[in-house]
Design a protein around this nucleic acid. Structure first.
Length: 922
RNA sequence: GCGGACGUGGCGAAAUCGGUAACCGCAGCGGACUUAAAAUCCGCCGCCUCACGGCUUACGGGUUCGAGUCCCGUCGUCCGCACCA
């Protein structure tokens, strides 16, 4: 039976055209079938698709095609995350406008995706750089503004000196820009913010409802939001007095680093001038984050600071307080520095050191004694010195702490350096209060309080509660001395970018009217096409006319906002836009509510925080402004692993691409040489495919030589989808062989005939097919594609053996083959169509319903039970499936192998687990 | 430092409920077909042992009739956060 080889190159475009002709993947909004929304993270149009895309979209397409066959109305759209810096970099390098570059890339990549045979509804395609998309984003920005979800304020921001733009906290990785890799600097700029912190608690609590998200992602978001419960305590400040302290300050040794001696100063010279009324020293009242820089400004400097607010999660250790410390940016520090050059220098030094993570890790704890002291709120006889310290963050809490050296390592380091008292107040279990001492390590474990007056004997949580009660009841000025507070690590989302290729922020700055929103009927604010990239900075700002407009309110000359939005804004709602991509408003509310949420979202783990947290916030903001009716956009989330590949490095250090290398194997040793020169090449680590390592494989080349089905099959086989998959030439060839094997087997079965004949219901190949059917369905439902692949291999092996046997039963084989073809259809859709046709069908398998497994075939008449003696397998026993336990027990005890293993010892017990196992205990 | 995940043949892995450890694939080995090669087909393939048999899920303990799976400890790898008060 000579069957010609399956010619993917010829067949694949033919079937793609057939699907398109039948409009198979065009999704109606109104349909009687239940909805299913499957989405893969949309690509950035960088130029060409890479293997990561192939893996991502192959998985999504399996789900889409499977759910369609299962009778769902499936929404499976595609679009382009098309704004971003690479377009501007290309513009600078190649003298091509970002728009042209981007749309050319989209055209290329759309063609590549189409050649994969994905079941996408292309009529819903969107590109975020298109005014028809971003005009709606601008409208929503204005709606958010009206709803109080937008803020504009001066803030210290992460500045990427290479990309010349601001980065969000989430986009700074190890102190470097997530895209440029440049060390990030801190700069003070006026910025636009989306107030994600309004939703801190909600975003945290709702994580519990995301039961179909990976635990890991939920945990990462939980940590990122960083909720902590603590106490805000107000300390009374006063100038230090007392000859002993002054003397000790005067004699403190010079700092060893050669820096100015921050520990030494003249206390008398910096007494604050009096009488200006009270100024709160802390940044935050009830609003936990962000530290409101604006508040400081309005207080001005030079006032009388007679209170210091600190935030602590350990109020129980208050009796162990040895010092207070404020951030270098704290208004108290700024005020004191006005009269104190040494403090000015100290603060400047902190700023010089504080910009990069590398220096932070090695930086020594440094403090500057302000000469002020704080009155202990529980023990008014005591005071503690107040320092400015380089390790206090203005961003968190109030920018001020009390230090308890005995129970915090960082505080201990500081106390040791400056000779402060280390007073333990928490006694570890079983420790002796008379002898317990703190050595080089602080004790942060549980225990009972001691050295702590009214707290003595309490547990840590009890003491925290007792301190909170006591201080809430005390007053300082006319306020309680302490209040309970919840703090979050999460910061508001700074979305200003000083770049051209992004969504313009639709506001106008007028000297008289201030910030004026662009009226809705003047949207969109479109980007000018005639921009130049011949100098650094924001091309919109350099443009001769674009920013000069009349104030919409008063008509006077005014200035357009030249900041554009972070591209993560674009990707925070595209999944909702897909539900009505041509609507005149951002959403078509009933349609959006009908389709949302996304039932299955698939993408890389690298978006665990950034994109996925922003999208959760943005959906809530859209709900608050009436654009959509739900909180959580993604009901199910799956994070897939990367595609990795060996690396090859020449002797001169150059990286070689897999295409330039020939790998051979001899005696278990793999060797590589450069194909052109024959020079030896070192086989390096297996790493993520990347341009810098040159270990990429071009999907189009694979699809041209093997076909899309082979590439898809390989991406789905072997490795579990959440884990990295290693791309190997051998693996692809194996997948290619399998494609041909399926084609041969199906043709062999077709040649046997058997149409219309009734299959023997109990034929073994039929049983195998139906069991495989059940197993593959379950595997796909669980997104365990590698398991589905293994089961399909088994079925093909069984079919092949049966088809080649002289006793082949054509009718049963035919039924099994038809099941096989429908099982492979979600994964290798083109091959499946070709096989379907070979079996005589004139319909499309892409339209065929998923077959139902015959339940009668899923349970066996007889089963083989393993027989153990004392937990070790000694034999097997074939019994009827409905055999009773005592019958099995009797049969087992008659087995000679059991008798031998028991070796004359009395049988104490026989455990029969029905359908599973028998264990004889002797 | 804090938080988390993982550790199974030469390799990728399977074992969804505590019940036969290693399905399926890759690589390898032997054979058939062929002048030859490729392709294809058949067989073998955790470790030790001629064999009978024994051993085996990082390591050490524990619970259980029974542990890759549950508990405690150790080691290792990877990931996230990180001066967060």
């Amino acid at each position: 039976m000579a069957t010609e080889r399956y010619n993917a190159r010829e067949a694949e475009p033919r079937w793609q055209a057939a699907w398109e002709r039948h409009g198979l993947f065009h999704t109606p909004d109104h349909d009687a079938r239940p909805k299913y929304y499957v989405l893969e993270m949309f690509p950035y149009p960088s130029g060409r698709i890479h293997m990561g895309h192939v893996r991502n979209y192959a998985m999504g397409d399996v789900v889409a095609r499977y759910k369609r066959a299962r009778g769902f109305n499936v929404l499976h759209p595609m679009g382009w995350d098309a704004f971003g810096l690479p377009a501007e970099n290309a513009a600078m390098q190649n003298k091509v406008q970002p728009r042209e570059w981007t749309y050319a890339n989209i055209a290329t990549m759309r063609g590549q995706l189409k050649s994969m045979g994905l079941s996408l509804d292309w009529s819903r395609e969107v590109a975020t750089c298109d005014p028809s998309y971003y005009r709606h984003q601008q409208k929503m920005f204005l709606d958010f503004m009206a709803a109080g979800l937008v803020d504009r304020r001066s803030a210290k921001v992460n500045w990427d000196p290479v990309d010349q733009t601001v980065l969000a906290n989430e986009q700074v990785i190890d102190g470097r820009g997530w895209r440029s890799g440049a060390e990030v600097e801190q700069r003070e700029l006026t910025q636009w913010f989306l107030k994600i912190t309004n939703y801190s608690e909600e975003l945290l609590e709702a994580l519990d409802t995301l039961t179909r998200w990976p635990e890991k992602v939920r945990l990462m978001q939980q940590n990122w939001i960083g909720r902590s419960e603590g106490l805000l305590v107000r300390f009374k400040l006063e100038p230090s007095k007392g000859p002993l302290r002054l003397a000790s300050l005067a004699t403190s040794p010079a700092s060893k680093s050669g820096l100015p001696d921050f520990g030494t100063q003249e206390p008398t010279s910096r007494k604050p001038d009096g009488g200006q009324g009270r100024i709160k020293a802390a940044a935050g009242g009830s609003s936990p984050a962000p530290a409101a820089e604006g508040d400081h400004a309005k207080h001005g400097g030079g006032g009388l600071f007679d209170e210091l607010e600190i935030y602590t999660t350990r109020p129980d250790t208050l009796y162990g307080a040895a010092f207070m410390a404020v951030a270098p940016d704290h208004p108290l520090a700024a005020a004191l520095a006005e009269k104190n050059p040494a403090l000015q220098e100290f603060i400047a030094e902190c700023h010089r050191m504080g910009t990069s993570v590398a220096t932070l890790e090695t930086a020594e704890k440094m403090g500057f004694d302000t000469g002020l002291v704080a009155r202990h709120p529980l023990d008014p006889a005591r005071t503690v010195p107040v320092y400015v310290a380089n390790f206090i963050l203005m961003d968190y809490g109030t920018g001020a702490i009390f230090g308890c050296p005995a129970h915090d390592q960082r505080d201990l380091d500081f106390a040791r350096k400056y000779g402060l008292t280390v007073r333990p107040v928490v006694l570890p279990p079983d420790a002796d209060p008379a002898t317990f001492q703190i050595g080089a390590e602080a004790y942060d474990g549980d225990g009972h309080l001691f050295n702590s007056d009214f707290l003595d004997g309490l547990t840590v949580p009890e003491a925290q509660e007792a301190v909170a009660r006591r201080l809430e009841g005390q007053t300082i000025g006319n306020r309680p001395q302490a209040s309970r507070q919840v703090n979050y690590r999460l910061r508001d989302w700074g979305i200003s970018r000083q770049r051209y290729w992004g969504c313009p922020i639709p506001v106008i700055h007028c000297e008289d009217c201030g910030v004026v929103p662009v009226p809705a009927d003047q949207l969109p604010v479109t980007l000018p096409d005639d921009v130049s990239f011949d100098r650094p900075g924001n091309p919109l700002d350099h443009h001769p006319t674009w920013k000069h407009v009349a104030c919409p309110r008063c008509g006077k000359p005014a200035r357009r906002e030249t900041d554009t939005m972070d591209t993560f804004v674009d990707s925070s709602w595209y999944f909702i836009r897909f539900t009505a991509p041509h609507a005149a408003t951002p959403t078509d509310r009933p349609v959006a509510d009908a389709w949302m949420p996304v039932d299955q979202y698939i993408g890389g783990i690298e978006h665990a925080i950034l994109h996925l947290l922003y999208s959760r916030f943005f959906t809530r903001a859209m709900k608050a402004t009436g654009h959509v009716g739900l909180d959580e956009p993604f009901a199910g989330l799956f994070t897939q692993g990367m595609v990795v590949h060996e690396t090859y490095q020449a002797a001169d250090g150059r990286w070689l691409s897999p295409a330039e290398v020939t790998v051979s194997e001899e005696g278990g040793q793999r060797r590589a040489v450069a194909t052109a020169s024959g020079a030896p090449v070192e086989i390096g680590a297996i790493e993520k495919m990347s341009k810098s390592r040159r270990n990429t494989v071009d999907p189009s080349e694979i699809m041209a030589s093997f076909g899309a089905d082979t590439a898809r099959w390989f991406m789905l086989s072997d490795s579990p989808p959440e884990r990295d998959v290693i791309w190997t030439a051998a693996g692809v060839e194996g997948a290619g062989r399998f494609v041909q094997r399926v084609w041969r087997v199906v043709n062999d079965v077709a040649a046997l005939g058997g149409e219309g004949a009734a299959a023997d219901p109990k034929a073994q190949v039929r049983v195998t097919a139906h069991r495989t059917l059940a197993a593959v369905g379950a595997a796909i439902e669980g997104l365990r594609f590698n398991v589905a692949v293994a089961r399909i291999y088994e079925l093909v092996n069984a079919l092949q053996a049966e088809a080649g046997s002289p006793a082949a039963a054509p009718a049963a084989l035919r039924e099994a083959a038809e099941i096989l073809v429908r099982l492979i259809a979600p994964m290798m859709p083109h091959l499946a169509e070709e096989c379907w046709q070979a079996l005589g069908h004139d319909t499309l398998v892409a339209e065929a319903p998923w077959p139902e497994a015959d339940p009668a075939l899923l349970v066996a008449d007889t089963i083989t039970l393993p027989v153990q003696v004392n937990g070790k397998k000694r034999d097997e026993l074939v019994v009827a499936a409905d055999a009773k336990s005592d019958e099995i027990e009797a049969a087992v005890l008659k087995l000679e192998s059991v008798a031998r293993a028991v070796a004359g010892k009395p049988v104490r017990k026989v455990i029969v687990v029905p359908q599973r196992i028998v264990n004889v205990v002797a």
